[in-house]
């Protein structure tokens, strides 16, 4: 039993409303996240050579983690790699501007710090930089949210937000979760 052209047209129009509604819903959630939670993509473009990331410069193993810079700003440097965040735990103070800088030596990863506006992709060849102010203390779960390979589901880190009084960087300005 063939449907008449009018029937087909009516079905198509009905479905087009569903499509519009779904698109509108997605757009509204993006707008809500952007306007209320301040989520936006990194606004700077900064390149770095992924092949030599571990050899010299900012993202060598010894330079990762939280550090209070000479100007008093707090910077956190994390390398996302298959299949771990390095370091796996970073400590940050609340109520203070924190700059997070991520880089990847291998494939595309993602970073999401639960309950904050930190949410970015980490693309090999670029530094992903996010500014934020942590408002609550506690261990914030930080999963990789961009499929990066077979170990993706076991790749997560902890961002430990502590009260300013408990944030105790050492003489070099470095702070780590295990108190080193």
């Amino acid at each position: 039993m063939a449907a008449s052209e009018e029937d087909v047209l009516r079905t198509e129009i009905r479905w087009s409303f569903v499509v519009f509604a779904a698109t509108a819903l997605i757009l509204i959630s993006i707008l809500y996240a952007g306007l209320v939670h301040g989520i936006n993509p990194p606004s700077n473009i900064e390149t770095v050579d992924p092949k030599t990331l571990h050899l010299s410069g900012e993202f060598t193993e010894g330079n990762l983690g939280t550090r209070v810079e000479a100007d008093g700003g707090v910077t956190v440097r994390v390398v996302t790699t298959q299949f771990a965040f390095v370091p796996q735990c970073v400590v940050v103070p609340t109520d203070r501007k924190v700059t997070l800088r991520f880089a990847s030596p291998d494939v595309i990863h993602g970073v999401l710090v639960a309950g904050t506006n930190v949410n970015t992709m980490v693309i090999p060849g670029y530094v992903s930089q996010v500014h934020t102010t942590f408002k609550t203390t506690g261990d914030l779960l930080t999963p990789c949210h961009e499929f990066c390979g077979l170990g993706h589901s076991q790749m997560w880190a902890i961002v430990r937000a502590v009260a300013p009084a408990d944030f105790k960087p050492d003489a070099q300005g470095r702070a780590a979760c295990d108190g080193r």
Binding site: E46, G57, E58, T60, N63, R101, H131
Partner: peptide
Amino acid sequence: TPAAGSPIS
């Protein structure tokens, strides 16, 4: 935002 100067370790 200007890049954060990449302080070398």
